[in-house]
Write a protein that binds this DNA or RNA. Structure first.
Lengths: 70, 70
DNA sequence: TAATGAATTATCGTTTTACAATAATTTATT
DNA sequence: AATAAATTATTGTAAAACGATAATTCATTA
């Protein structure tokens, strides 16, 4: 699945706890965990927005398109 | 709505017609039009992936988080 | 200024799935 | 061990992405 979710990386960089982000964003830790691990098939912009807001980052920091073969 | 969809910009840069992109991605022109204009509330990664593939761009080129006030 | 092409808008229906809620389990951390 | 943090699991629901289609508007060009 060529869209890679890098939320785990950004969280680590910012040293932010999932719990805190989940609380701010307004989603459960369970769902945030799934998102972090790239186990969801899409995302709503309002969720993405609040994540970017809290982490002070861009969608491009969280989502990367990776080609399968060059 | 602080997540801005810049698909229209990238399409213009690449000089790609909506029809062609829609065909490649496998969605209708109608839905692509809605996406272009930021009239959708989210996106599935497989759709985002095929758009990035065709336009040879990154999610970050298509989606921007814009703060309301500084 | 028709005629064509391209894009938008509008309806309605369907299926997918993001999310909540909750609880149990696993994995850090102290 | 005890606590905190994160993951996994289950079930349910509401939201919305998307299809299909057609009509309308906008743009281009002969």
């Amino acid at each position: 699945m060529p869209i890679r979710v890098r939320l785990n990386v950004v969280l680590a960089e910012r040293n932010v706890k999932s719990k805190d982000l989940a609380e701010y964003v307004g989603i459960t830790e369970a769902n945030l965990s799934l998102l972090k691990q790239g186990k969801v098939k899409g995302i709503r912009f309002d969720t993405l927005e609040r994540i970017c807001d809290y982490l002070d980052c861009q969608p491009g920091d969280l989502l990367r398109f990776e080609r399968v073969s060059e």
